[in-house]
Amino acid sequence: MMQSQEILRLKEIARRTRRLIIESVAEAGSGHPGGSLSAVELVVALYFHKMRHDPKNPRWEDRDRFILSKGHAAPLLYSVLAQAGYFPLEELKTLRKMGSMLQGHPDFRTPGVEYCAGSEGIGLSVGIGLALAAKLDGKDYRTYVLLGDGELQEGQVWEAAMAAVKYRLDNLTAIVDRNGIQQDGLTESIMPLEPLEAKWKAFNWHVIQIDGYDFEQIIDAYNEAEQTINRPTVIIAHTTKGKGISFMEWSPQWHGQAPKKEQVSKILEEMGLL
């Protein structure tokens, strides 16, 4: 059992992260709030509990790597990196604007970003490259890759699923943000992914299913992945698109639409995020 104080600390960071996402996307006037809000706890648990990293030394060789393969959740990654100390919180106001270090989709302008995401379906393969290099160099850093569930419709994800097992990459953890919604609607009506657990199992991955908002389950899953040897682990995290903002929840409409600036304080107040 985790100490409840640690859970409370993480919950508070998650609350602040949701607020920063809403504020920065509203300020930008465009972006992807839905898929950012759905994976908040998964990423907060990595950067503020699980991962070995040093914001003062972003290129530290032994750091754990996090690859945001679903690059449209950039506002989430930036909000987390800023809070962790990779760059000042004020930068978040420049999201998506000319000259900003915070591009619409993550790239190397931003300290702490490990991969230029944006084109779906590539991140898990890149994670394999990092994990192979770690084994080759005898390093014990771990690589985490966050995938969107809609992203699993990209064939390359399954090419990567095969390769990670061939090379017994137990230092690689994939996390699926299973919010069930993509831009055009429900994943299960656009292009069904189920039976999703059976698919990953058939590819011989170690599969863990969790509630993507329960920090205890999240951290237990990361620990279980770390203890699993000789094969990679995928964590299917059941989530809600737009989580925490009532009218954005379960709404494909809020996949790629920003709230209006004048709505922000009302939204934050209603959701208890102020």
């Binding site: 994670g127 394999i128 490259g129 990567a160």
Partner: peptide, 19 residues
């Protein structure tokens, strides 16, 4: 990496990311 060129190219990218 087998007959999976997109995967091969992206894995090469990951290896390069690691130096």
């Amino acid at each position: 990496i087998g007959i999976a060129e997109s995967n091969a190219v992206s894995i090469a990218a990951g290896l390069a990311l690691a130096g």
